[in-house]
Nucleic acid binder design. Structure first.
Lengths: 216, 216
DNA sequence: ACGAACATACCAACCGCCCGGTATGTTTCG
DNA sequence: CGAAACATACCGGGCGGTTGGTATGTTCGT
């Protein structure tokens, strides 16, 4: 059910402009605090156009999450770290890439679907599910490199590639919260550095079971 | 400027009931989506009482963050892990305690100030600052044990106790987002286990500089 | 000691505005 | 033409916030 939008290839059509406005405005103000009029003003369209393309405001939230998933997956798929030979290098390349794009205002580098998940998780299950699909779908793209790195280094662990991939997303999401709390990026970068250190430790001891502190 | 409220100690006064309602309702619906009427209904008071105690809805948000900071700091201060002798055991005791209270619905175990930070960071700086004070104040309570554990084990690291303390909060906040995305607790527990594993690795190699992957 | 004066805590009713949503055009393109 | 893509104008309701009032202390001059 994606939009063909063949008619006006001149400039971004209203639907796309609304989705881009949603991406920017919702990250800055949150979903509930963003009114339909806010979005129309930011996109330069009228309310009639909005409800022509989206049945309700909730439907726009779902579409915005899907649009986020599309654009970010394309963005990461084209990132240069994929060209590295060693899967572990690609994993660190991913984390460094995430660090590199933490720049400017938090509204510009934080995650739309993470923000929306927190906010609407109880009131808009449809949006929450779309956000969850984006988050876990992105996490899943890390699994092959993690699994390959484990195999290449003979790591036998009590954790799975999937769980470590999800953990990277948890750290990033948490880092975004700290960044928003202070308004700066330092705390976020700091936490991602701890994540890098964790990965370094995990992959530096070949047949580690992690030697956990207790039976965690 | 705290409330004496000596007059009617018979029942919980309206102000406290409103703050408790805010803690519960905002965690479930978010700040912006929670109306003043919602809070009044949940607290069993009228709107007149609300605006008697709080000048605006934003003021309630600030007070709710402060109330959260008070109640949670008392809650953690009384937790049993503080009685352990080894500071590292206390640190792991803290993390296990956090794991133990991840139970039931996400609205019951997630963090009010983390949720509000994400939502209002751009629109209500006063609330954001109160949330930031709560988060970083809580993180600061971990620093002494981390520093003592480092000293006891002769750890010389390129990270500080403060940064590791903040990182634990980032992981927890991120874990809450994953939990809300799926509606369950498993993903959150999983990420906290990765945090435990990180701490175990950090403190198991005495004079580690972390041997980072590059000059991070 | 006592009551007038004041303060606090709360309630019921109301207000204007802005919100999500709709009904009805008008333009544009194949 | 005809239909999709937009614009204009307009609701009804809920929102944050206000007003005026009451019941119950608390203070203080005398």
């Amino acid at each position: 059910m994606p939009r063909p939008a063949k008619h006006h290839p001149e400039r971004g059509d209203a639907r796309t402009r609304l989705l881009e406005a949603a991406r920017d405005v919702i990250r800055a103000k949150g979903f509930a605090a963003t009114s339909v009029d806010d979005l129309c003003k930011a996109a330069g369209v009228t309310k009639g156009a909005f409800f022509h393309h989206f049945e309700t405001k909730e439907a726009l939230g779902v579409a915005a999450a899907a649009y986020w998933a599309e654009t970010t997956s394309a963005f990461f798929a084209n990132a240069p770290y994929h060209r590295l030979d060693d899967p572990l290098d690609r994993l660190f390349g991913y984390v460094d890439f995430r660090k590199a794009i933490i720049d400017g205002d938090p509204a510009e580098f934080t995650c739309l679907v993470g923000t929306m998940t927190q906010e609407v998780y109880g009131s808009h299950p449809a949006i929450r599910d779309a956000c969850a699909a984006s988050i876990f779908g992105h996490a899943a793209t890390l699994e092959p490199d993690i699994a390959a790195a484990m195999a290449a280094r003979g790591i036998e662990a009590d954790w799975t590639p999937a769980s470590l991939a999800r953990h990277t997303q948890a750290v990033l999401q948490g880092a975004f919260i700290l960044a928003k709390a202070t308004g700066g990026r330092e705390e976020a970068l700091e936490s991602v550095d701890h994540l890098k250190r964790y990965l370094t430790l995990l992959f530096s001891q070949p047949r580690s079971k992690g030697t956990p502190h207790d039976g965690c």
